[in-house]
Design a protein around this nucleic acid. Structure first.
Length: 859
RNA sequence: GCCCUGGUGGCGGAAUGGGUAGACGCACGGGACUUAAAAUCCCGAGCCGCGCGAGCGGCGUGCCGGUUCGAGUCCGGCCCGGGGCACCA
């Protein structure tokens, strides 16, 4: 028996799996399907053990479902468009395509070294024309239906990357990628009308039982559904009315002023004859130029317009103010201010001495509304449930806020001064990018015909490869005359192509469907097959995609559904987000920092002050800048991929963040080596001479442990408890080792060992394949049937003592593993305890022995 | 501020509906093998105290209280960590 040398056996089995194409599946083959999918990666070329966790986890699951006899699909591809490729081109003079393709080649090798089985016959890369052609086709379909449109809107502009960003890509007012403060610009851009689907995207979350609550909640907050009412407030001096949106129409009798966003279209007319008009306009200009972040940091500021609106319920005139805290994009850009019951309005009212009127009181008299008057409020009273009552509010006085909301809504509609409405925080998805390395938007600008879509027969609009990368002056496509100049498909005259490319999130919004028929040149995908294979049964990826990717994918899947291309509406049945792997590392306090970290160091002239070079110790996600990356190659060379796989899954529950420990790896290696070394003893077991018959241990313990382990591991796969699944395999191997160590040589040991190998296979595929073949078993262990536990053989030989007090079940205690004659002793022991628990009461004690039932009365 | 999470040995973490807290592994201590080391195997261990010793006693799942014969687990109130959202009317 040679020593355990993963370096010898792993490449061998990787070659065998590849040669036998074991992971290739005919999508039209029969059987119960299981679509397993890891989020396809951006090929940055630097996979580390943290990434490995994600793919190893998926591979273990895939192998498990295969062994359970399912038609399992596990494809892989590349989210290959994106900014880093372009930046590499600018910095190092490599073409983005070359950079991307060489990274793909490297990562593919890495996947193989991890022993991961993907169906490479279905590989896709979003930067290939064969793929992005269908991005363009999809765009044209959406355009036809009005779901893609060009619009001018205030957009987020990153001056560093020289491109616009989606709202989702702006974090705390900064570019998600580079941390530069995002500017607001009015630009004509392409949008997808995701807001059209806001209600369905919100409602659909309820059907996603197997998604983490956390992710659903994040999406729900992002969509931001608000139910309320639009109400018209007449402006006598203007001869018109201004519409406000409120979620609290029940507080309308407390609306003592109105606030408009400085950008509101009626502002000019309102301040036209204001004596300090110039000053107000100057102030408005200042607010407009502020970024969203600066606007909030400025605190609440406002100006009185000098005009009044009429509260439609109290009929009182209320002053109209402009306020920087009212957002032009949300609702109608105008609010009724109820300072007593909205914290923001309260702060504004306090600051400018505006009237405050209490219209809700807590039923128990507590809280701010318990105060005798508005003047002693210290904060707004915002309660919206049965614990409060509306006061001094005409027709709704005495109602609870919830009932009042309904009642006022009806009244508003009856009076014809507004209606009940639902509004969403979600805004349309801005997909234009002024960048080269992406899918060209298939549109043409013709002076005579206007906007003309590229005819479908002319797709794909190919991205020209011979363009210069200077890193200056924006998108190189805009300078490429050969690309730019085109004949108008309608009139044949000279026209220009759109030079914007699509956000790469468009690429990833439907790729899961393309995997089913990846080479189809005639259509985006085969609808019948997609209907069979979608939704994805298990989707695995990082929590960082909780909003962006997953929301866009849900949107596009619904759009595809509405185009009649599939019956599926929700693309992912089960979602799992693995935690990151962290490691102790060091960082330069300024070098390579994210902007969040930069915020915490010294600033000079608006830039981080890079005076210090002292390294700071910290634990964090693996990254080059932190010098804490564990490259898989060294690890695999030393301990093997199986060790990395087992350790990675053993380290912690997979959804949790886990700290990498170089010492911990050894434990996984030792476990595998023990399983390896055990083979020799297994081979020696059997009907041959046994060690001293009388002292040989009973095999029953091994059988029991084996069946318990089969049951436990199987159930733990369903619950993603890989860490305890592996620990239970260690226990089984320990039990078998002890049995052998004490002289046990039962011939059935060989089969038990085979079962151990099967259960271990998803975690340590190479080792188990090798041992399986050395055991003389035919075929790949991968294609063997997953073992099934026999419940009868799982039973512990323990006695459970059920305690009843006066006929009522009061609890139970378990006396482990006694010989049958010890039951009496156990009863005596239990008796003592029972008496100490309940003195003076009659206790009925029932003793359960497997197959027996004993009742005892204890006093 | 709001929402979601989590808090168990030196460390990562176990504990099916309340029932021997600390499985499994790391690190640690002792022993075997070895000229020696590595590797491997065996044994030990929550913490504190007592005992030469088999052992005995006390305290233990962030804190305080409650329910229960029995609480890491259920209930109420706090404290702390991690994450998300944040003028969205």
């Amino acid at each position: 028996m040679p020593p355990y040398q993963p370096g010898e056996i792993e490449p061998k089995w990787q070659r065998k799996w590849a040669d036998a194409r074991v992971a290739e599946i005919d999508v039209s083959s029969p059987g119960e399907k299981f679509y397993m999918l890891n989020m396809f990666p951006y090929p940055s070329g630097d996979l580390h053990v943290g990434h490995g966790r994600n793919y190893i986890l998926g591979d273990a699951l895939y192998r498990f479902f295969r062994m359970r006899g399912m038609a399992a699909l596990n494809p892989m591809g590349w989210d290959a468009f994106g900014l880093p490729a372009e930046n590499a081109a600018i910095k190092r003079g490599i073409h983005p395509r070359e950079w991307t393709m060489s990274n793909i080649a490297r990562e593919k090798v890495q996947f193989q070294r991890w022993g991961i089985l993907y169906d490479w016959s279905k590989e896709i890369a979003s930067c290939n024309p064969g793929y992005y052609k269908w991005n363009q086709w999809l765009f044209l379909q959406l355009y036809k239906r009005g779901l893609a449109y060009r619009g001018t809107a205030p957009v987020n502009w990153c001056p560093e990357d020289r491109t616009v960003l989606a709202n989702e890509q702006v974090v705390d007012g900064r570019c998600e990628r580079c941390g530069t403060i995002v500017e607001q610009k009015e630009l004509a851009q392409w949008f997808f009308r995701i807001t059209e689907y806001a209600d369905r995207l919100d409602a659909g979350l309820d059907s996603l039982e197997h998604w983490p609550e956390k992710v659903k909640l994040m999406q729900r907050n992002w969509i931001g559904k608000s139910v309320g009412a639009d109400v018209e407030f007449p402006i006598p001096s203007l001869g018109k009315s201004i519409r406000i949106f409120t979620t609290r129409p029940d507080t309308i009798f407390g609306a003592t002023f109105m606030v408009l966003a400085p950008e509101h279209p009626d502002v000019a007319a309102l301040i036209a004859d204001h004596p300090q008009r110039a000053e107000i306009e100057f102030w408005i200009g200042g607010v407009r130029n502020q970024s969203a972040l600066e606007r909030q940091e400025a605190g609440k500021e406002g100006r009185f317009t000098g005009k009044y609106a009429t509260n439609p319920f109290t009929k009182e005139p209320i002053p109209i103010w402009l306020g920087n805290f009212v957002l032009p994009q949300y609702g109608t850009g105008a609010i009724m201010a109820v300072p007593a019951h909205d914290q923001r309005d309260f702060e504004f009212a306090k600051q400018y001495g505006l009237p405050i009127r209490v219209v809700i009181r807590a039923n128990d008299g507590a809280g701010p509304a318990g105060s005798t008057g508005a003047s002693d409020l210290s904060e707004a009273f915002t309660v919206k449930d049965d614990s409060a009552t509306i006061v001094e509010s005409g027709l709704i006085t005495g109602l609870t806020p919830l009932k009042a909301i309904d009642r006022i809504g009806d009244e508003v509609e009856r009076l014809g001064i507004g209606k009940k409405t639902v509004r969403y925080r979600l805004r349309d998805w801005l997909i234009s990018r002024q960048r080269y390395w992406g899918t060209p938007i298939p549109m043409i600008y013709c002076d005579r015909c206007g906007l003309v879509p590229v005819p479908e027969k002319d797709l794909p609009v190919e991205l020209p490869l011979d363009v210069p990368f200077t890193g200056r002056e924006g998108n190189p496509l805009a300078k490429d005359e050969a690309f730019l100049n085109v004949k108008c498909p309608q009139c044949g005259g000279a026209a220009k192509r759109e030079t914007d490319t699509m956000d790469t999130f468009v690429d990833s919004s439907w790729y899961y469907a393309r995997f089913i028929s990846p080479r189809d040149e005639t259509k985006i995908f085969d609808s019948a097959l997609v209907d069979r294979w979608l939704p994805v049964d298990q989707y695995i990826g990082g929590i960082e995609h909780a909003i962006l990717h997953l929301l866009y994918a849900r949107f596009i899947c619904r759009a595809l559904h509405d185009l009649g291309l599939t019956h599926v509406e929700e693309p992912f049945t089960r979602l799992f987000n693995q935690g990151v792997i962290t490691k102790e590392g060091y960082r330069d306090p300024t070098q390579g920092m994210s902007w969040v970290q930069l915020n915490e160091v010294a600033w000079r002239d608006g830039k981080p002050y890079r005076g210090s070079t002292e390294l700071v110790a910290e634990v964090g996600k693996m990254s080059k800048s932190r010098f804490n990356v564990v490259p898989p190659d060294e690890l695999i060379e030393r301990y093997g991929a199986d060790t990395e796989r087992v350790y990675t899954l053993f380290i912690a529950p997979p959804e949790k963040e886990a700290a990498w420990s170089d010492e911990g790896v050894i434990g996984a290696y030792r476990f595998l080596a023990r399983v390896w070394n055990m083979l020799e003893q297994i081979q020696a077991s059997g009907p041959g001479p046994r060690a001293t018959e009388s002292s040989a241990p009973s095999f029953d313990g091994v059988v029991r442990k084996m069946h318990q382990t089969i049951d436990g591991v199987t159930r733990r796969f369903d619950r993603f408890e890989f860490n305890t699944a592996i620990s239970s395999l260690m226990e089984l191997s320990n039990v078998m080792g002890d049995y052998i160590g004490t002289g046990g040589r039962d011939p059935r040991l060989r089969d038990a060992y085979g079962v151990l190998l099967q259960l271990l296979h998803p975690f340590a595929p190479h080792l188990t394949e090798e041992l399986w073949s050395m055991l003389g078993k035919d075929g790949f262990i991968l294609t063997s049937q997953w073992p099934v536990a026999d419940p009868a053989l799982m039973q512990e030989e323990s006695v459970t003592i059920v305690i009843q007090v006066n006929g009522k079940l009061r609890g139970q205690i378990e006396v482990p593993n006694p010989p049958v004659e010890a039951v009496v002793m156990a009863a005596v022991r239990a008796n003592e305890r029972v008496q100490s628990w309940v003195t003076g009461k009659q206790i009925v004690k029932t003793i359960y022995v497997p197959g027996k039932l004993v009742n005892m009365v204890v006093r």
